[in-house]
Amino acid sequence: MDLKTTKYTVDEDGIATVWFHRPGRGNSWTNRMHAEYRWIMETLDRDPAVRVVVVTGTGNQFCVGADAKALSFYTTSEDDYSESVAVGREASPGSGVNPEFETDLIWHWGLRVPVIAAINGACAGIAAALVSFCDLRFAAEGAKYTISTPRLGLPAEYGLSWVLPRIVGTTHAADILFTGRVILPEELLAMGYLNGVYPAGDEFLENVYTTARMIARQVSPASVTSAKRQMYADLLHHHPGRSIDDSKGLIGGFMKSPDFQEGVKALQEKRSPRFPDPQLPPRTEADNRDPSLA
């Protein structure tokens, strides 16, 4: 795909970095970016060499939310919003795992790989929702976070009314959703929204990569995938006994795997484990989609 609003790399450890890339426009969100981001994430999830994905923004901003021109368009347009943001021939990252994940942003939970949001600067609107569906979240000191919608006359968007109470509790979620105020990373960390806050600047991503490298180098990719899918599936029900029983069944299967054998051997030999790349199912012809926009 010809990428115009995003870019990505993959390093030798299997750490992929994805950038929202609209310099001079605050990396603001557009339908084009939406399609590119989905395509990138599906591509990375299907690459067995990729073990973790870091999502960030070009320059000193993460993503300031929807492009201002697009917002202005809806003040006079009669177009239906849901139809206007439905990009044709989209990639389908995270599909086939859980029917509840077959929609915008929640598809992050169906991905094989863990996704780390590296909030390097302003994060607003749809970007605030997007990072809420990432698995881990780190922010640079001084990065401003706001959902924006109350000050735009809009409702809570993209599942924030569901996911925020589950991350920070109803008290903090009500504060975030009702006021739309700008919140700094230190307060978000105290709320439990962030996993860490690091100094801004060139060293910010290096600090985030410390966690990414631990995942890439020291843990079984299959174990991470399973734990991720167990966690999000369990969020959708209220049966702890089912969670235990399901995990026991999974343990039995994993104990027959090469990863378990390697993990035990590494423990006995007092060394770091060397887990192989996962064996992924081959792509089908139907998977070769390119959601390029005119």
Score class of each variant (00 low, 15 high):
Ala173Lys: 02
Glu187Val: 15
Ile147Trp: 13
Arg137Met: 14
Arg181Asn: 06
Thr170His: 08
Trp162Cys: 00
Gly159Ser: 03
Pro185Ile: 12
Lys144Tyr: 13
His172Gln: 10
Leu177Ile: 11
Leu184Pro: 05
Glu141Gln: 07
Thr179Trp: 03
Arg151Trp: 10
Tyr145Arg: 02
Leu164Asp: 07
Trp162Ala: 00
Ala143Phe: 10
Tyr145Lys: 01
Ser148Phe: 10
Leu177Phe: 05
Ala139Trp: 15
Glu157Ala: 04
Leu189Met: 14
Trp162Gln: 00
Phe178Gly: 00
Leu152His: 05
Gly159Lys: 04
Ile176Leu: 05
Pro150Trp: 00
Gly180Glu: 10
Phe178Gln: 04
Thr179Tyr: 03
Ile147Gln: 02
Gly153Ser: 03
Leu177Val: 08
Gly169Pro: 00
Ile183Tyr: 15
Ile183Thr: 15
Glu157Thr: 08
Thr179Gln: 12
Glu141Tyr: 05
Leu164Ser: 13
Phe138Ala: 11
Leu154Arg: 13
Ala143Asn: 06
Trp162His: 01
Arg166Met: 11
Val163Ala: 09
Leu154Pro: 00
Ile147Arg: 01
Val182Pro: 07
Phe178Tyr: 05
His172Arg: 11
Thr171Leu: 06
Gly169His: 00
Gly159Met: 02
Val182Asp: 14
Leu152Gly: 02
Thr146Gln: 09
Ser148Asp: 10
Leu188Trp: 13
Thr149Arg: 00
Thr171Asn: 05
His172Tyr: 14
Gly169Asp: 01
Gly142Lys: 10
Pro150Ser: 06
Ala140Gln: 12
Leu189Pro: 14
Pro155Lys: 12
Pro155Gly: 03
Ala173Asp: 10
Tyr158Lys: 04
Glu157Trp: 03
Glu186Cys: 00
Ser161Cys: 02
Pro185Gly: 07
Arg166Tyr: 06
Pro165His: 07
Ala173Glu: 13
Leu152Ala: 04
Ala143Met: 03
Glu157Leu: 02
Val163Met: 09
Phe178Val: 01
Gly153Gln: 06
Pro155Leu: 09
Gly159His: 09
Pro165Arg: 02
Ile167Asn: 06
Leu188Phe: 11
Ile167Phe: 06
Pro165Ala: 05
Val163Phe: 01
Ala174Trp: 13
Asp175Leu: 10
Glu186Arg: 04
Leu154Gln: 13
Glu187Cys: 13
Gly142Glu: 09
Arg181Trp: 07
Leu160Pro: 03
Leu164Phe: 14
Phe178Pro: 00
Pro155Asp: 11
Ser161Tyr: 06
Gly180His: 07
Leu177Asn: 07
Ser148Lys: 06
Pro150Val: 07
Ile183Gln: 15
Thr179Gly: 14
Ala173Leu: 12
Leu154Tyr: 08
Gly169Gln: 01
Arg166Asn: 10
His172Ser: 06
Ala139Asp: 09
Ala174Met: 06
Ile147Glu: 04
Leu188Cys: 11
Ile183Trp: 15
Trp162Glu: 00
Ala143His: 07
